[in-house]
Structures are given as C-alpha cells and as structure tokens.
Design a binder for these strands. Structure first.
Lengths: 223, 223
DNA sequence: CTGTGACAGTGACAAAAGTCGCAGTCTGAT
DNA sequence: ATCAGACTGCGACTTTTGTCACTGTCACAG
C-alpha cells in the first residue's frame, strides 16, 4: 500500500488540505502498479473511482467496434483521471491504459464525496479540474472537425515538445500512438510527418520527429 | 428587467434554493432577447457570464478559418450555457447564436461565484452540470472520430425525435444545421438521408425527415 | 551474433467525404 | 399573386483519408 502522504499534496483536488486531512485521504487511497500496455479501466464499467497518476503515463481512449482507437487525452504524472464517474456515479466514459510503467492511486467514489462535502476548497478544485477538461475536449472536437490531419499532427508534436520540456521524462510517441491521438491511421501520420519535414518544420531522424522550427510548426497547425 | 423568479427555479444550479435566495438571484439576473440568427456570444471573448435559456433554442458552435461550422451542442429551454468561462474566468471556448427567437437570462461571473460560495447545493449542481457536459463532449468526439456520417446523421435524427417528444416545440433542423452538428457538408447530409430512407428507417416528405423505424435507425447509428 | 518483434517507409488502390453547379420547391413578404 | 430567399435534390468531379501489402531497420533477448 505505502501511499505517500506528501504525494497526495500534489493532487490538484487536495492541494489546500492540511496535514490531518491528507492523512485521512491517504488512509482512503490504494496504490496500484501497471506495466506498459496494461488496461486500467474499461469503458462502460461501473465503479467510478478517482485515479491519480503518481508516476508514469496513462492514455484515456475510446475504441470503435472496428477496432479503431481514439485517444481523448494523455494523463501525465500529477494529474487525475476518471473524474466524471467518480463525481456522478455513472459508468466510465472511456477506457484507460498505461503507456509507461505507472503507479496510480485510487480513491473510491464514496470517499471522494466525503472529502468534497467536508471541504469547499476541494469542491472548488473539482470545478476547476472539470472546467479544464471541458476546454481540452472542446479543443479536441475543434481539431477533429475543423483541421486536417497534418495540422493535427503538427499540434501533437508541439504538445510533445512542450511536455518533454516541462518534464524531461521524454516519452517518445510512436506513429501508431500519434495516429490514435489524431484520430487517423498510422500511414497517414507518416505522410503528414513527411509533409512537415518538407515544409522545413521538423526533421525525421531514424523515425523520430525532431522539431526544428517551432514557429513554422505553429503556423502549420492552423493551415 | 422582469426576470421571473419562478423561472429561476428551473435552472439546475438553483433548484434547491429557497425563496429568499432566488429573489437574490433574480436581482442579479438580466434578461436578453434574441431573434433567430442573432449572435449571443463570440468565441474568444472574455466576459464569462452564465447564460440560461428561458425559452427558445441556442446553438453552441466553433467556426474554422475556412468558414466551416461545428456545432458542439444545442441548448434547449431550461438549460444553461457558457458555464465554463463563468466558472474559470477564461475566454469563451465557443460562440453561441439563437436558432429560434429566444429569451436568455444572464448572470455575471462574480454573482455566480457568490452564490456558489454561499451554497454547497449550488456547488454540487455545478459539478453535476459539468460532468454532464463532459459526457456529452466525449460522445461527440466518439461520433466524429469513430463513426461515419450516416451513423451520425441517424443519431441526430433520433435525438431530434426524442427532443420533439419531450417538448412539443418541434423545431425543424435544416440539412445545413444537421451538417453543422455532424461536422460535415450539407450535400453529404442529403446523401446520408437518402441512404437512411433506402434502408427503410425514415421517409423524406417534402424535405422533412420522418422517422419510420426507430429500431432500425438505432442500428444504423452504430453501423 | 542472429532471430524476433516492434516500428517506420512506401506505393498503389479503394472508399468516403467534400466541392461545384444548377435545377427545383416551398414559404413568407410585399 | 408573385418574387426573393432559403432549402432541398442531384450528378459529376476532386481531394483527402483509409487500406493493403510489403520492405527495410533497429534493438533486444537468447
């Protein structure tokens, strides 16, 4: 179990809590470990526990009957997922799987509810987190519906660039993973990357895309 | 401005409030009237007031530089919109326009904040509403990315069917509007409707789609 | 040092969606 | 009643995406 109390302080929801309350949260939390590829949550399942990524990287995704996958969001260390079912008690809206070996803390819905009721600060943080998620999803809809694949791929590369600067964990997305993020097929991502390379925005070094010209990439994002 | 106190009780956020608090809300609310086609909010603008549709129908949408429009959601009477900026203070994530002559109540961000802080019930309702919006958007992403146009159109028709039964306001969507909902072009919607007609699920009577076989339509939704 | 498997590179082809250009039709306003 | 504007119906054509079927590389395990 060994949930670390200090780690809990990094959960956005609980940043404002005192030592005593945090200890209470720790008592409610369970630690789980996953290997790359492990399924953490299945779409449609009930349960609705709040999950927090202590370390590693998690993808939230939907799968079609034909087997196509759409990633809704990548969850890096320090962030929560499955918030919605934890709050409204409904089924999981999407599946979750580990992209890297990951350590996840799990807090049951009932316990989370206790914490929210007891503390207005937690409630406020919940609202902020949900608002954030909504903005993120609106942006995703905009991308899927209003941009072509190359622009989406450019955006993904910029996001990765930023993420790898903030945390030097430096996870490398495969083309297959980018395809799932962009809602398209692997080959199409390959073409898009080549296009971006010809535009001089990136360089492909042994399969890895290296950002050469952030500005140009940003331009291509909306082209 | 003749905001009706009783109407405010229908706002999900304020359903639990007492008469006194409702009067307070009424004092904070401003009524606005819009004609069909009027722009209510512009994407990117600051301001972030909460809007409540007293009567009429409002669309929330994004527009691309090329002029293509993607509707994120239709807001019927009795529901709020622009919640996210009202809660987090950021810019409007999308634009809003009236599809029918509409009466809208507007509550400023600061006032909403006062109400939330003063009442845990309001805070809880806010969380529920946001969770709901998130589920809706996840479904939209799924549709855009994992379904083809015909399935999306089938879904829109079912939604309309249901909406027109709940409230007999019976607004008729044009193909252009369905196209914006489905994230595609008007002609493509026309083709999809023809396809659904050939499948025996609907009938086209002078441009209007009439649902004949709900079951079949539901099937085509995931085909 | 040699398989094995996971990724990337690619060209050819298929299918879905988007675009054009008009021709009808319906409706509400003058 | 008639006219303008908004909406629908279609066919032809283009573009973008998606799919297939391989090949080439690289890295790690045995």
């Amino acid at each position: 179990m060994s949930v670390e109390v200090e780690a809990l302080r990094h959960i956005p929801y609980f940043a404002q809590l005192g030592q005593k309350e945090l200890a209470q949260v720790a008592a409610m939390s369970v630690e789980r470990r996953y290997e790359r590829g492990d399924l953490i949550l299945l779409e449609g399942d009930p349960g609705g526990a709040l999950h927090y990524v202590r370390s590693g990287l998690v993808k939230i995704f939907k799968t079609s009957s034909a087997g196509k996958e759409q990633v809704l969001r990548l969850i890096a260390a320090g962030h929560t997922f499955n918030d919605v079912p934890a709050l409204d008690g409904g089924p999981n809206p999407a599946s979750a799987a580990a992209l890297e070996p990951s350590v996840v803390y799990v807090i049951r819905r009932a316990d989370l509810h206790t914490l929210i009721v007891a503390s207005p600060e937690v409630a406020a943080a919940v609202v902020q987190t949900l608002a954030n998620a909504l903005r993120h999803l609106v942006a995703l809809v905009e991308d899927l519906s209003l941009r072509h694949v190359t622009a989406r791929v450019a955006k993904i590369l910029l996001d990765q660039e930023k993420a790898s600067q903030e945390a030097p964990s430096s996870y490398h997305l495969t083309q297959q993973e980018m395809a799932a993020l962009a809602g398209t097929a692997r080959e199409v991502v390959g073409r898009a990357l080549k296009e971006l390379e010809q535009a001089g925005a990136i360089e492909l070094r042994q399969g890895r895309a290296v950002v050469l010209d952030r500005e140009r990439l940003l331009l291509l994002t909306s082209a």
